[in-house]
């Protein structure tokens, strides 16, 4: 296999050296590296390692962590159920205004999350276009609830999955779907049994990215869902709040998020190494 690490390493070792890097690239490059890594090292240095255990054991940390994992996972579920079909529509069908739709889908990627939160409030808030109807009809309000957290996270995380899956779909040969059709498969069967397995690595990568994004969500969540411990106070919100009152707790919470991020990165690398 071309992609096996062993082969790749050998190829790299045999490549001839082509002189050192020019200073104009080396110096800013190294500064950039320090800039990225130093804050993380700082976090590790200042961590209260001695009473890490008791800090982690505190109810507030445990609740925030539990809430974060739950909402991020639920948001990823929503994103998968809605985002994969959306990506398929963007990649495999042609409709008027497709480019505009695509631009709209990617907008939350660059939109400040606070703006997303405000927009969600305007639509789903108690006085919002849809929210008022929800309230009148079902007596149900989304903002400032755990469900509200999930909605805010899904809103922000969805584009990551859609972009990833759409890219995988575009890279997958559509003629496999044609081959499936000539064997009697409807478009749905072809998607389920042929296309989806073929793009599985892309879906997985997109889901992990979306999950990580949801886990770190701050702006939209605090705007749309508020900051109620045990209900809407996710890890990032807890970190921010703790910084004011109990900096050590903030550091511990940050460490946990850092550890999760490192795990995700390791997981993704493993995935990409074995599939490509």
């Amino acid at each position: 296999m071309i992609g096996s690490p062993r082969v790749r390493r050998r190829v790299r070792a045999e490549r001839p050296r082509r002189g050192g890097a020019p200073l104009a690239l080396l110096v800013p490059g190294l500064i950039g590296l320090v800039f990225l890594v130093l804050p993380l090292i700082g976090l590790l240095i200042r961590a209260p390692w001695s009473d890490l255990g008791s800090q982690l054991g505190s109810t507030e940390v445990r609740e925030a962590l539990k809430l974060s994992l739950f909402t991020a996972t639920a948001a990823t579920g929503i994103v998968l159920v809605l985002g994969v079909p959306l990506a398929w529509l963007l990649a495999r069908t042609d409709f008027p205004g497709r480019r505009l739709v695509r631009a709209l889908v990617t907008l939350p990627l660059v939109l400040p999350p606070v703006v997303g939160g405000v927009a969600l409030l305007l639509v789903l808030g108690r006085r919002g276009i849809v929210g008022e109807w929800l309230d009148d009809t079902f007596g149900y309000t989304l903002p400032f609830t755990t469900t509200g957290v999930i909605v805010a996270e899904a809103f922000v995380a969805m584009p990551f999955l859609v972009i990833s899956v759409e890219g995988a779909l575009r890279a997958a040969d559509p003629r496999y779907e044609e081959a499936a059709a000539t064997l009697g498969a409807s478009r749905w069967t072809a998607f389920r049994r042929v296309t989806l397995p073929l793009i599985a690595p892309g879906v997985a990568a997109g889901a992990v990215l979306a999950w990580a994004r949801a886990l770190g969500e701050f702006g939209a969540t605090i705007t749309f869902a508020g900051n109620f411990p045990g209900k809407t106070q996710t890890m990032p919100l807890a970190v921010y709040l703790a910084l004011e009152t109990d900096p050590e707790a903030a550091i511990v919470l940050s460490l946990v998020l850092l550890a999760v991020s490192v795990l995700i990165l390791a997981g993704l690398r493993e995935r990409w190494m074995t599939t490509s």
Binding site: A179, A181, T182, L183, G184
Partner: peptide, 10 residues
């Protein structure tokens, strides 16, 4: 295509 009695070797 899925409802034609046609087989294809691509």
């Amino acid at each position: 295509p899925e409802r034609r009695p046609v087989g294809v070797v691509f």
